[in-house]
Computed example of a mutant assay.
Amino acid sequence: MNIEAILYQVSVWLIPALLAITLHEAGHAFAAWKLGDGTAKAMGRVTLNPFKHIDPVGTVLIPGMLLLLKAPFLFGYAKPVPVNFRALNKPRRDMVLVALAGPGMNFVLAFLFALSIHLLPLLPEDVALWVIENQRNGIVLNVVLGVFNLLPIPPLDGGRVAVGILPNFLAIPLARLERFGFLILIGLIILLPMVSRSLGMEFNPIGWVMSGPISFVVSAIAKLAGLG
């Protein structure tokens, strides 16, 4: 095991992963505060300081282990932001806006990483090589996290959006799925692809659903940042 190579990989993923995972929650906290719920504000969560949102296991241990194991995906989470939906100005509408704020923050971060690429000519060549890897990882990781969280599966943000906009006869059964949401995601992300590969097939529904939107968003962000 090449320790230098591992440390280098950690160095080019650490900042993008930390910002993507923690500021996603900051987006939720800010939106909830502005829409009438001061719960997160009272807990000091309405801040861009990533250390206020770190979960030791979800933000540090799990992504670090996946990186060291060279897993084909990087997964992590921060401390969930507590939201009192009854305190929101218009609970059903505002629940949707609070949910969208997390992925929205990720797309903003991806754009800022892309925009910062214009600063590369100002850096020494050896430093620029390290910085561009951080920037590329920041773009991809934030877009992947944003798109993934928009999937309409509770407890993902997209699930809360769907519950907020669907008629009650569809929203209520979907909301009840939240208790099983994590198991559903594990099945779709890990178990189904693993079983299908063991049978000589390739069945990765989450990957198929996400690939098109990810490519579209990355391309759109690159154009908006003047990179293509």
Rank of each mutant, 00 (worst) to 15 (best):
N2R: 11
N2H: 10
I3S: 15
I3E: 15
I6R: 11
I6S: 13
L7V: 11
L7R: 08
Y8R: 13
V10A: 11
V10S: 08
V12M: 05
W13S: 03
I15C: 01
A17S: 13
L19V: 05
L19C: 05
A20D: 00
H28C: 04
H28P: 00
A29S: 03
F30C: 12
A31T: 11
K34R: 15
L35I: 02
G36C: 03
T39G: 04
K41D: 04
G44Y: 03
R45N: 13
R45E: 10
V46Q: 08
T47Q: 04
L48Y: 10
N49G: 11
P50G: 12
F51W: 13
F51A: 11
F51Y: 12
K52A: 15
D55R: 11
P56M: 11
G58R: 10
G58P: 10
T59N: 08
T59L: 06
T59Q: 06
V60P: 08
V60D: 06
L61K: 11
P63K: 09
G64N: 08
M65P: 07
L66N: 14
L67T: 08
L69K: 12
K70C: 09
F73V: 15
F75R: 05
Y77M: 03
P80T: 14
V81T: 12
V81K: 03
V83H: 09
F85Q: 15
F85K: 14
L88W: 05
L88E: 02
L88K: 05
L88M: 07
P91D: 12
R92K: 14
M95T: 02
M95W: 00
V96Q: 05
V98I: 05
A99F: 08
G102K: 05
G102W: 04
M105F: 07
M105D: 04
V108Y: 14
F111V: 11
L112H: 11
L115P: 10
S116Q: 13
I117W: 12
I117V: 13
H118R: 15
L120Q: 10
P121H: 08
L122G: 09
L122S: 11
D126S: 15
V127W: 09
A128G: 07
V131Y: 11
I132N: 13
E133V: 13
N134E: 14
N134Q: 15
N137I: 02
V140L: 15
V140S: 15
N142R: 09
N142I: 09
V147P: 03
V147A: 09
N149F: 01
N149P: 02
L151N: 06
P152R: 10
P154R: 02
L156V: 00
D157A: 11
G158Y: 04
G158W: 04
A162G: 06
G164D: 00
I165F: 09
P167D: 01
F169H: 15
L170V: 12
A171T: 05
I172W: 10
L174K: 02
A175K: 08
R176V: 07
G181S: 07
G181H: 01
I189F: 04
L191I: 07
L191V: 07
L192N: 00
P193A: 02
M194V: 10
V195L: 03
V195Q: 01
S198Y: 08
G200Q: 05
M201E: 09
E202N: 12
F203K: 02
P205Y: 03
I206R: 01
I206T: 01
G207D: 00
V209I: 07
V209E: 00
S211E: 01
G212I: 06
G212W: 06
G212H: 05
S215L: 09
S215Y: 07
V217L: 00
A220T: 05
I221K: 03
A222Y: 06
K223T: 14
